[in-house]
Simulated assay, not measured.
Amino acid sequence: MTAELIEKEAIDVTKIIPADTKLSEELINRLASAPRLGNEFKAKATIEFNTTEGPKRVYTTVWSVTEKYIQLKNNIHIPIKCVIDIEF
C-alpha cells in the first residue's frame, strides 16, 4: 500500500497508531540525524507513519527528536513508535 502524502497541518494525532514493524537501528540513526538536517541545512524529510486510515507521508522539517516523539513545526508531535520510515 502506498502512503498518502498529506500536509503537516492535516495530521490528526488522534488517528496515529503504532507501526506494525519494529524500529531498525538504521531508522533510529536516520531519525537522530533529521533535526540537524532541518536546523543546519534547512532541508526537509519525508516521514511515513501509521494511522487508523492507513499509512500517511508528510514532507516537512523535523525540529527535534526525543526518546518518544518527532517534533514538527506548529507543535505537532508524531510518536516514534508510529514511524514506518524517514527519507531525506
Rank of each mutant, 00 (worst) to 15 (best):
M1Q: 09
M1H: 15
M1K: 11
M1F: 14
M1A: 11
T2G: 07
A3V: 11
A3H: 04
A3I: 11
A3W: 08
A3F: 08
A3N: 06
E4F: 03
E4W: 04
E4D: 15
E4V: 10
L5M: 08
L5C: 10
I6P: 01
I6F: 07
E7S: 14
E7D: 15
K8D: 03
E9N: 10
E9I: 12
E9R: 10
E9A: 13
A10Q: 12
D12S: 13
V13H: 15
V13N: 15
V13S: 15
T14C: 11
I16R: 03
I16H: 01
I17C: 13
I17Q: 12
I17K: 13
I17L: 15
P18K: 11
A19T: 07
A19V: 06
D20W: 07
D20M: 11
D20L: 14
T21A: 15
T21I: 10
T21P: 06
T21C: 12
K22F: 07
L23Q: 14
L23G: 09
S24N: 08
E25W: 06
E26T: 13
E26F: 08
E26C: 12
E26Q: 13
E26L: 13
E26W: 13
L27R: 12
I28T: 10
N29D: 12
N29Y: 10
N29A: 11
R30L: 09
R30C: 08
R30E: 15
R30Q: 13
R30W: 10
L31P: 02
L31W: 05
A32I: 11
A32R: 09
S33K: 04
S33V: 11
A34L: 03
R36S: 12
R36C: 11
L37E: 05
L37V: 14
L37T: 07
N39T: 06
N39H: 10
E40K: 14
F41V: 15
F41W: 11
K42G: 08
K42L: 12
A43T: 04
A43Y: 05
A43I: 06
A43C: 14
K44Q: 05
K44G: 04
A45H: 01
I47F: 03
I47Q: 05
E48F: 06
E48Y: 05
F49G: 02
N50H: 11
N50A: 05
N50Y: 00
T51N: 05
E53V: 06
K56Q: 06
K56T: 06
V58Y: 07
Y59I: 04
T61C: 02
T61H: 02
T61R: 03
V62E: 00
V62N: 00
V62T: 07
S64H: 05
S64V: 07
S64D: 15
T66V: 05
T66G: 08
E67I: 09
K68V: 02
K68H: 12
K68Q: 14
Y69F: 02
I70V: 15
I70T: 01
I70P: 02
I70Q: 00
N74Q: 10
N74G: 09
N75H: 10
N75L: 08
I76D: 03
I76Q: 01
I76L: 09
I76E: 03
P79A: 00
I80P: 00
I80V: 09
K81L: 00
K81R: 10
K81S: 02
C82Y: 01
C82G: 03
C82S: 14
V83M: 03
D85C: 02
D85R: 07
I86R: 00
I86E: 00
E87R: 04
E87A: 09
E87V: 05
F88W: 14
F88G: 14
F88V: 10
F88R: 14
F88T: 12
